[in-house]
């Protein structure tokens, strides 16, 4: 295990580094830039990113379907969507380059990443839906304990 082969290309092979050490610094610069973007956006909070780009569709089955597929754009502030996407990008590079996931066997990679992503998405989906449901009940319903 002492001499690992390192995959020295990031951004799908578009950026190649000469040594592992250089790659580490390159990834650090990239992560720093993303963090600075996040902080700047978090302080300025541009007005045009504070309201969802789309409103929900009204109507039948296909409107509901469209609402589900487009829910990140309908129910979420664009700013928050940007933050979450940037976070996932950061998480990817920390795992792939700092934790050397890029160099691990495909099986290990899938075992770790797919398990975590599936379970986390499932948990978050259920809890957020339930939380929103309780919010609606507190807000609109007459019966507040029997739900």
């Amino acid at each position: 295990m002492a001499h690992h082969e390192h995959n020295l290309a990031i951004f799908r092979g578009k950026l190649k580094f000469k040594s592992n050490e250089q790659k580490i610094w390159g990834v650090f610069v990239f992560l720093s830039v993303i963090t600075i973007i996040e902080v700047v956006f978090g302080i300025i909070k541009p007005e045009w990113l504070m309201a969802p780009f789309m409103s929900s569709f009204e109507g039948g089955f296909f409107a509901t379907l469209a609402n589900i597929f487009l829910s990140p754009f309908i129910y979420m502030k664009p700013l928050n969507l940007i933050f979450i996407v940037l976070t996932l990008v950061k998480a990817y590079y920390i795992t792939w380059d700092f934790m050397h996931m890029r160099d691990e066997a495909k099986g290990l990679r899938r075992m770790v990443v797919w398990t975590a992503i599936f379970l986390i998405c499932y948990l978050v989906l259920i809890l957020l839906l339930e939380g929103d449901y309780i919010y609606e009940v507190y807000k609109n319903n007459f019966i507040k304990f029997d739900f």
Partner: peptide, 26 residues
């Protein structure tokens, strides 16, 4: 790696619970 996966699930449990409470009082 296995420990990290399970610990990641613990933390996502906490953060998801945070999201739940926040959505409740959004």
């Amino acid at each position: 790696w296995f420990f990290i996966v399970s610990d990641a699930l613990t933390f996502s449990g906490f953060l998801a619970a945070y999201g739940f409470s926040r959505f409740k009082f959004v």
